[in-house]
Nucleic acid binder design. Structure first.
Length: 117
RNA sequence: CGAGUUGACCAGACAAUCGCUGCUUUAUCGUUGUAUUUUGAAUUUCGGUUCUUAAUAGACAGAUAGGGGGGAGGAAAGUCCGGGCUCCAAUGAGCAGGGUGCCAGGUAACGCCUGGGCGGCGCAAGCCGACGACAAGUGCAGCAGAGAGAAGACCGCCGAUGGCUAUCUUUCACUUAUUUAUAGGUGAUAAAGCACAGGUAAGGCUGAAAGGGUGCGGUAAGAGCGCACCGGAUUGCUGGUAACAGUAAUUGCAGGGUAAACUCCACUCGGAGCAAGACCAAAUAGGGUUUCAUUACUUUCAAUAGUAUACGCGUGGCUCGCGCGGAAACCGGGUAGGUUGCUUGAGCCUUAGAGCGAUUUAAGGCCUAGACGAAUGAUUGUCACUUCUUUCGAGGAGAUACAAAACCCGGCUUAUAGUGUCAACUCACACA
RNA sequence: CGGUCGUUAGCUCAUUUGGUAGAGCAGUUGGCAUUUAACCAAUUUGUCGAAGGUUCAAAUCCUUCACGACCGA
């Protein structure tokens, strides 16, 4: 089933949900982005974002990065197995443009899919 | 046409596809309570009341699918001020403390805005200014300098007045020599000399700052010592609501600087903040009623009865004031989470009136984000813009400036591409 | 979102009501010593976070900005 939807069910909402991801994660990442994942019991994938003000100073840049990540997640979620993930960001990410962020994320998705086959 | 000044405005546009989030509407499903009718039962003072079954109506919230329509800013920012709103018993009294500071007006209010005054800058249009009082009191001013606050005499100037000096020079008297005159001697004199007393505040020196400025007269030298002009002070008059301005008379002139030093004067401010607060509500400590007890005093056989609330705590710094208080039994309360507060407001637009203006009055119209691990996006195409290349046909590059709501408004400050658009005004040059 | 603090030498900190900025450690040089350490002596160190203002004079007083830290679910 191919879906491009992204509503509240495909997000992490409470501190409890975030804690379960942080407690026993598998790590993936690139130079600028780190992804923590744990398998979940539901069928859908769920996304949580943790973009610190310390890493990206300006609100405009933080919003831009979040939107790029969500967009990429939205378009690729049908390929992923049922997992919860938290995406974190390192300093310097605000200097990348949208194209580069997209490419890095797609590499990470491919890695995750290979690992779970 | 060039150089400027001020004010207002914009914040890339359009289309397609895939998404996010509120609102609205249609259909289907589901839900509980309400109204009417209805089935059965209980009770009955035979009017009804309570429970229950089904149908219909409309309502509410939810799910799914479809349609419609809305969705970041001029600064949303910094959090520098002010107000609404909420709680703190009523926000009450006094002290302390803070803020503001030319005058008048505007406003819900302000440290904001408007107009005016004064001072400074600019040829000008205009711009800038924490701009009350040091003549109420207290304090501060290193080093340097003679002297730093009713100042002082280092250099300098003078030495009129008083003092000192007779070697020289001035004048006079007596006397000796010779020739009337000259030369010598003796004595006096203080003109001259000295700079001892003293005078002086022109000049020099020091410093950020030295007790009105310039000129003339005057004087021993000088000096507001005298005069003229400028400046100041006091008093009056005129204009102005006022700040202030103008003017007349009087006064020789005055203790300067610093209040973003304490302070004084005038006005003003209670504290905390939507993580305020309210409601629904798992778990655990705490709250109301009854009984018992605590500290001090009085009383009593007795904690028997009575009085007080010392003491501690409380959302502002203190005082007054105000509220609360320990144990057992019973009853009941509210953190996680959710809902609300939450967007109709000192609102915006148009027209007309008042006012120099800020602003305000009236009429008509409009509804313009309400999210919460936090939406407002992505891709593609066309056009516009900037920039690069150019065979002048075109082609390439660009997250297009600064930056994103978090209870809401009024300001201030700071950041801003497009040498952006429009209007008014000033100066210079040229032409008519 | 709201509230409260801080910024001085390479490092850790002083500097009290304005008068020309210090201490310790570190560094450099010399002495002692075969050398190092230790010890002794000398010495170098600053746009007082930035920019304006008040004042004769500002690290200090005032204003605006920058950066950093902490507190309130």
């Amino acid at each position: 089933m191919v879906t491009y939807e992204f509503n509240r069910e495909s997000r992490l909402l409470t501190p409890g949900q975030f804690q379960t991801v942080f407690s026993k994660p598998m790590r993936f990442g690139s130079h600028h982005i780190t992804v923590l994942i744990t398998p979940n019991s539901e069928k859908t994938n769920r996304l949580g974002l943790a973009i610190a003000k310390k890493r990206v100073k300006l609100a405009v840049q933080r919003n831009r990065i979040k939107r790029q990540i969500r967009e990429s997640f939205r378009l690729n979620q049908h390929n992923l197995p049922g997992i919860d993930m938290v995406i974190m960001v390192k300093s310097g990410t605000d200097k990348l443009d949208n194209q580069e962020i997209r490419q890095q994320l797609e590499k990470i998705w491919r890695k995750i899919i290979q690992r779970h086959k």
